[in-house]
Every structure is written in structure tokens, then in C-alpha cells.
Design a protein around this nucleic acid. Structure first.
Lengths: 154, 154
DNA sequence: CCTTGACCTCAAGTTAGGTTGAGCTCGTAG
DNA sequence: CTACGAGCTCAACCTAACTTGAGGTCAAGG
């Protein structure tokens, strides 16, 4: 007889199935990415659909999205029923556009760098790299603005 | 008479000229990105060439490089003399290749996502997104690996 | 000379995304 | 029934890249 298929899974099983540490899964719950129920003993019980949900989190992270951004995407999934492939497909499309933006921003920077390599400026006020608009492509706190040399410097 | 041009500049001046906070400049020194001398009173004295150096740090950060990676690049600059445009140009070329790699990795992921959108899988073992090799494109700790559903799941 | 703003050091705080450890409870195999 | 692995909570710790604060010094103008 095959082991019977449980309706819900434990945190350990979800960890095994996704490769995500138990501590990370609990952390995701605190960040409202997962909403496990509890059994009578207070232990978390996840749905099988949560395996896909966690996989989405993993993939989105490899694409450079923050937990907060991933939560926004997951919030678009239907409440109260297991998401269908169509639902997942819809939000994949949504984050593909973010990805396209990121790539475009990086390419724009690369092109500017191409232009700058020849002159070796890298810090001149007139340098194309002096463009705060592109900063959106990066994450983290980062620098606030750039300012270059004036004529007599260096 | 024009104000005389000082040979070295104070940390406040460097901060004004680059837009980088004084505290950040001191931090960069602890990370060995800057090597100011000290005057008799113990105050830091930077070279004008450090304006360009700091600008390089800012630009490299917008490209997503870490302080450690930026230090590696700066270490390639000649010791003992003010870097020339040629020197800067050389290291710009060097980091352009890193940038190209990043873009290529992101594009590769986007292409896989394109393939996945139709099926809505996003977590299947056979999914092209299940590819640890692409992780190199991301930074931070991130997930360790992906594992998807098996047939009867969900 | 005195004031004031710019500098100094060192320690601690911040955010993101978790991990680790202590101390205790659950639940299942034998 | 009892052991013991799996779970639980809560607090503390970790890295990166800085910022903030406390408490003290330097230097230039009046």
C-alpha cells in the first residue's frame, strides 16, 4: 500500500520539497508570504499548493526581486481558492515586464559606459553616466547623486 | 584675485564635490577604497584625483558592484602616481565585461520565463528556470536551490 | 583670545533576509 | 508508555553599506 496522501503538509516536508530552510519558511510567514493554518498542537500545516508558492518566491528572488515586491505579486493571486496555472501565468507575465525594465536600464548604462570608455572620463559633469534616472535599476541604499570634476581639477 | 587652488582637499570638500556623505567617505577609507593623508592636526587630506576615484565608486555601485568588487578594480590602478585617463579607461573596460555577463544572465532568465509563461508551471522540475547556474547573476544570499512538484501534487 | 563650525574616534543603530540557540512541547515509532 | 526527532517561540546574531550620537579637538574669522 502506498503511503496515504495527506491533505496538508508539515513545515519540514515543505522544506524538503522546496529546499528552503525551515527557518526561512517561518520568516516568510512573518512577512506575509505564506499563511499556514495550525493543527490542534499549534504546528503549522501548509497546503500542497504552497510548494508552488515557495517555488515562485525562489524564482522571483533569483530575478532580483525583494521580499516586499514578491509579496505584492503574490497578493494578486486569488484568495480562497488554489491558484490555477492561468493565475500563475498571469503573474509571471506581470513580473516579466519588471524584468524587461531592469534589463533595459542595465543596457542603457552599458551603452553609456561604451561611450565613456573611449574618453576615460568616468566622472565628468558632462558624462552620460551622470544620470540619476537610471538608479532605479539598482537596489539597496546606494549613492544619492554623482558630481564630477570641473575644468581645473586633477 | 581668485582663491588659491589648494594642493589637497578636506573631507568636507570631497563630500561637497561628490555628493557622498562625510561618514561614507570615512567608511570607504576603512574599506581601503581611499587612502587620505593626515595633516599635523590629524585631519584627512585628500588629493583632487580622489574626486574621480569617488565618482568611480558611485558609478560602479549603480552598476551593482559591491564595495569589495570595486576595491578589486581600484587596486588595479597604478600606485604612486595620479591615474591617467588611460588608466581609468582600462578599468572601465574591465568592468564593462562584468556588466555584459550580468545582462546576459538576466536575458537568459527572461527567455526561460518567456517559455514558462505559456505553461504557467513556474515550479515544475522540468522547468527551465530550475537552473542553479543562473544564480551567479544575482547577489545576496538568496535561495540555495529549487525543487518542484511531482505529478500528484497540487 | 574666543567662538564656531568642521573634524576626529569609537560604539551602536539601521535594513534585508535570514540563521542560530535556548528552552520547551508535539507526535509518532517501538 | 516512553523516547526522541520534529515543531514551537523569542531573542540574538550575521553581512553589507552606511548613519547617528557622544564626547572631544582643530582651525579660521572677528
Amino acid at each position: 500500500m502506498p503511503a496515504r496522501v495527506e491533505k496538508t503538509i508539515s513545515i519540514g516536508t515543505l522544506s524538503d520539497r522546496t529546499g528552503v530552510a525551515v527557518s526561512a519558511l517561518r520568516y516568510y510567514e512573518t512577512q506575509n508570504l505564506l499563511f499556514p493554518e495550525r493543527n490542534s498542537g499549534g504546528q503549522r500545516r501548509f497546503l500542497r499548493a504552497d510548494i508552488r508558492r515557495v517555488s515562485f518566491i525562489l524564482i522571483a528572488q533569483t530575478f532580483g526581486f525583494s521580499i516586499a515586491q514578491i509579496k505584492e505579486q503574490l497578493d494578486r493571486l486569488p484568495q480562497g481558492r488554489t491558484p490555477t496555472k492561468r493565475d500563475w501565468s498571469r503573474i509571471s507575465t506581470h513580473f516579466k515586464s519588471h524584468l524587461d525594465e531592469k534589463i533595459a536600464a542595465l543596457e542603457s548604462m552599458r551603452d553609456k559606459l561604451d561611450g565613456c570608455i573611449g574618453c576615460g572620463c568616468l566622472s565628468l559633469q558632462s558624462c552620460a553616466l551622470y544620470n540619476p534616472a537610471d538608479k532605479a535599476a539598482t537596489k539597496g541604499t546606494g549613492p544619492r547623486y554623482l558630481m564630477g570634476d570641473r575644468s581645473q581639477d586633477i
